[in-house]
Deep mutational scan, measured.
Amino acid sequence: MGFKLLSKLLVYLTASIMAIASPLAFSVDSSGEYPTVSEIPVGEVRLYQIADGVWSHIATQSFDGAVYPSNGLIVRDGDELLLIDTAWGAKNTAALLAEIEKQIGLPVTRAVSTHFHDDRVGGVDVLRAAGVATYASPSTRRLAEVEGNEIPTHSLEGLSSSGDAVRFGPVELFYPGAAHSTDNLIVYVPSASVLYGGCAIYELSRTSAGNVADADLAEWPTSIERIQQHYPEAQFVIPGHGLPGGLDLLKHTTNVVKAHTNRSVVE
């Protein structure tokens, strides 16, 4: 069995187990497998329904001669939608809004960016022009300005110390501490036991640490421990890039980060 097929099978099995364990909360999309990078042309966006009122959005972007996937989250909030992270750029984010209108038909009224990198804030200006209120932590807003990236308009308070959590509509926002970046936030959907790890969490097929220019490698494993301790009931975990899975993604990420750190020390 090929690795790609095995990865998709694991996603399907995880979703099936969740649907059985929580039949009222989960209505997993039966329309197909989780979209992969090879299936999404740059400039297009796919939506994948995880649970009743919960979707991931998947886009792709060219970077350094390669094409990478990027995940975000959409959560229903009454007759409105909360968006977590842009679709990595203005063109993708405009396509995301169009796809949401086509498939869901509810307005996106608020959006949260989970850290300051372009795959999370690139497209904020498109959201703002569409009347979406954009939010991020003060740290993310400051770092985005320093980096020359787009800056969300509103500040999220109460997320300055490791372990801080605040309720934001249908989700809980959690600051686990520094990891992929010093400002990275985690998003949890309690009604569906869905954990969105953003770039602080890796997919299972990833074996290298990737972009760690703004990471705190020493603190990252401790931050992941905080996530595990705060959300032990999480059933569906979405990484910032690639295929979702279960809580095993947290341990896998820790292993990859520690291996990278150990290699760096040896070198």
Score class of each variant (00 low, 15 high):
53 G>N: 11
261 T>P: 15
116 F>L: 05
8 K>C: 15
65 G>M: 08
64 D>V: 08
16 S>D: 08
183 D>V: 02
36 T>N: 14
38 S>A: 11
181 S>N: 01
177 G>T: 00
263 R>L: 13
152 P>I: 04
55 W>N: 02
260 H>K: 12
84 I>E: 00
258 K>T: 12
188 Y>L: 00
140 T>M: 00
106 L>S: 08
265 V>K: 12
216 D>C: 04
228 Q>W: 11
162 S>Q: 12
53 G>F: 07
249 L>D: 02
228 Q>F: 08
60 T>C: 05
221 P>Q: 09
218 A>L: 13
206 R>H: 15
176 P>Y: 00
144 A>T: 08
87 A>V: 02
183 D>A: 01
78 G>I: 08
52 D>S: 11
242 G>A: 04
51 A>M: 07
134 T>I: 02
87 A>T: 03
79 D>R: 10
38 S>I: 08
184 N>W: 01
133 A>R: 13
95 A>D: 07
103 Q>W: 10
47 L>C: 03
78 G>F: 07
178 A>G: 12
101 E>D: 13
24 L>C: 08
39 E>I: 11
200 A>V: 07
263 R>A: 14
193 S>T: 11
139 S>T: 13
251 K>A: 13
144 A>C: 13
94 A>P: 04
232 P>E: 07
176 P>I: 03
178 A>F: 06
142 R>T: 13
125 D>A: 09
49 Q>A: 12
97 L>A: 00
210 G>K: 06
107 P>Y: 07
5 L>P: 13
165 A>Q: 13
1 M>K: 05
255 N>E: 13
66 A>T: 12
51 A>H: 07
194 V>M: 06
266 V>D: 15
45 V>M: 04
154 H>W: 12
255 N>L: 10
34 Y>G: 08
92 N>G: 08
257 V>M: 07
251 K>W: 11
164 D>S: 14
185 L>T: 03
182 T>Q: 12
248 D>A: 11
24 L>D: 15
253 T>M: 02
107 P>N: 10
164 D>M: 11
31 S>M: 10
5 L>D: 15
201 I>C: 00
199 C>N: 04
176 P>K: 01
198 G>P: 00
94 A>F: 11
55 W>Y: 06
1 M>Y: 05
7 S>H: 11
161 S>E: 14
175 Y>L: 01
236 F>M: 10
136 A>L: 03
236 F>G: 04
170 P>E: 06
49 Q>E: 12
36 T>K: 12
250 L>E: 02
125 D>H: 11
254 T>P: 05
93 T>F: 00
78 G>K: 08
110 R>Q: 11
209 A>S: 10
166 V>N: 05
200 A>C: 06
170 P>G: 06
169 G>Y: 06
262 N>D: 13
126 V>I: 09
44 E>R: 13
114 T>W: 00
186 I>V: 13
183 D>S: 01
150 E>P: 07
257 V>L: 11
242 G>F: 03
80 E>Y: 06
184 N>Y: 04
4 K>L: 05
186 I>R: 01
50 I>P: 04
158 G>E: 07
73 L>W: 02
227 I>N: 07
193 S>Y: 15
244 P>D: 03
65 G>R: 08
126 V>Q: 07
240 G>Y: 04
148 G>R: 09
255 N>F: 09
135 Y>D: 02
162 S>K: 14
2 G>C: 09
10 L>E: 13
249 L>T: 01
21 A>V: 14
185 L>K: 02
97 L>R: 00
103 Q>D: 15
222 T>A: 12
93 T>I: 03
218 A>N: 13
37 V>G: 15
116 F>P: 00
234 A>F: 03
141 R>W: 03
33 E>M: 09
83 L>G: 01
245 G>K: 01
260 H>F: 08
240 G>C: 02
207 T>Q: 14
116 F>V: 04
121 V>H: 03
167 R>D: 13
32 G>T: 09
153 T>S: 12
29 D>E: 10
243 L>V: 15
254 T>H: 15
54 V>I: 07
102 K>G: 10
86 T>P: 01
167 R>F: 11
140 T>Q: 05
16 S>C: 15
259 A>S: 13
17 I>T: 12
24 L>W: 07
248 D>M: 08
94 A>K: 13
162 S>R: 14
25 A>G: 13
221 P>A: 11
155 S>Q: 14
248 D>Y: 08
159 L>Y: 04
266 V>A: 14
37 V>R: 09
85 D>H: 03
66 A>D: 15
189 V>W: 00
14 T>F: 08
173 L>Y: 02
158 G>I: 03
2 G>F: 15
112 V>S: 02
8 K>W: 14
227 I>C: 02
59 A>T: 12
241 H>I: 02
140 T>A: 05
223 S>T: 10
86 T>M: 00
177 G>I: 02
263 R>I: 12
199 C>F: 02
117 H>R: 01
195 L>R: 01
150 E>G: 06
73 L>C: 03
26 F>E: 15
77 D>P: 02
97 L>D: 00
8 K>H: 07
240 G>H: 07
243 L>S: 15
58 I>R: 08
213 A>T: 11
130 A>E: 10
178 A>V: 08
176 P>Q: 02
149 N>A: 12
13 L>R: 13
18 M>P: 07
62 S>D: 15
50 I>A: 05
258 K>E: 14
82 L>W: 03
190 P>V: 07
72 G>K: 03
84 I>P: 00
142 R>C: 06
65 G>E: 13
242 G>S: 05
45 V>K: 02
22 S>C: 10
48 Y>F: 14
7 S>V: 10
140 T>K: 06
113 S>N: 06
29 D>R: 11
43 G>Y: 06
27 S>H: 13
43 G>T: 03
62 S>C: 06
100 I>F: 03
71 N>M: 06
193 S>R: 15
146 V>T: 14
161 S>Y: 11
177 G>M: 03
128 R>I: 11
217 L>A: 07
1 M>W: 05
263 R>G: 14
188 Y>G: 01
132 V>Q: 00
5 L>G: 09
118 D>P: 09
74 I>K: 03
141 R>Y: 04
184 N>F: 00
213 A>M: 12
21 A>L: 12
176 P>S: 03
250 L>T: 03
130 A>Q: 14
156 L>R: 03
98 A>L: 14
248 D>P: 07
48 Y>G: 06
236 F>D: 05
38 S>D: 12
111 A>H: 05
213 A>P: 10
159 L>N: 00
122 G>A: 10
189 V>N: 02
46 R>F: 08
246 G>P: 06
54 V>T: 06
116 F>Q: 00
213 A>D: 10
133 A>G: 09
232 P>I: 09
117 H>L: 00
100 I>Y: 02
86 T>I: 06
35 P>S: 08
99 E>P: 01
39 E>F: 09
252 H>E: 02
22 S>F: 09
148 G>S: 08
99 E>K: 11
243 L>M: 14
252 H>T: 03
11 V>S: 13
84 I>V: 10
3 F>R: 07
206 R>E: 15
114 T>Y: 00
107 P>A: 10
153 T>L: 11
131 G>K: 09
203 E>Q: 06
169 G>P: 05
186 I>C: 03
261 T>Y: 10
112 V>E: 04
264 S>H: 10
35 P>V: 07
185 L>D: 01
123 G>I: 02
110 R>S: 10
125 D>G: 11
86 T>V: 01
97 L>Y: 00
199 C>Q: 02
102 K>L: 12
169 G>W: 04
13 L>P: 09
190 P>A: 10
157 E>A: 12
75 V>S: 03
192 A>I: 06
20 I>C: 09
17 I>C: 11
57 H>K: 02
261 T>C: 06
244 P>E: 02
144 A>N: 03
62 S>V: 05
176 P>G: 02
71 N>K: 04
99 E>R: 12
65 G>P: 04
58 I>N: 06
246 G>E: 08
214 D>M: 07
213 A>V: 13
237 V>H: 01
85 D>G: 00
238 I>D: 01
212 V>G: 11
176 P>M: 01
249 L>H: 02
258 K>Y: 09
155 S>K: 11
156 L>W: 03
161 S>Q: 13
14 T>M: 08
